[in-house]
């Protein structure tokens, strides 16, 4: 039963899973890159990113590049740990 508790509810959605996966292997990703890779709408992606930000799993930086607003996402230490735990739990569940 203890394995089940390691399944993190915060990651229980395709788009959140996608955001975390991308940020695990990239130093950072901007909004457009995430949108293209995940095939999500603006609003959808923004709300899922917000949820992950609230958990402090990802960090959001807003800046201006050539006077255009740019939102950049990166993973936090906490996020990395939590996601790793989530993956391990998934793998164990499949292993059975």
């Amino acid at each position: 039963m203890s394995i089940i508790t390691n399944i993190n509810k915060a990651f229980d959605h395709r788009i959140r899973l996608g955001i975390m996966s991308i940020l695990m292997v990239n130093e950072y990703a901007d909004f457009k890159m995430l949108k293209e890779l995940l095939g999500a709408t603006d609003g959808n992606l923004a709300s899922h990113a917000k949820a992950l930000e609230k958990e402090e799993y990802i960090k959001v930086e807003k800046q201006f590049i050539a006077r255009k607003p740019n939102t950049r996402y990166s993973i936090t230490k906490l996020g990395k740990l939590a996601f790793q735990k989530h993956i391990n739990a998934l793998e164990k569940l499949i292993g059975k």
């Binding site: 395709r14 899973l17 996608g18 975390m20 996966s21 991308i22 695990m24 292997v25 990239n26 990703a29 890159m33 890779l37 995940l38 993956i87 998934l90 793998e91 569940l93 499949i94 059975k96």
Partner: peptide, 19 residues
Amino acid sequence: SKKYLDDISHIKDMMSRSS
């Protein structure tokens, strides 16, 4: 476990496609 398997392959796919 089918859902979990899908999740894992989704994670793998996103990781390799974004790198």
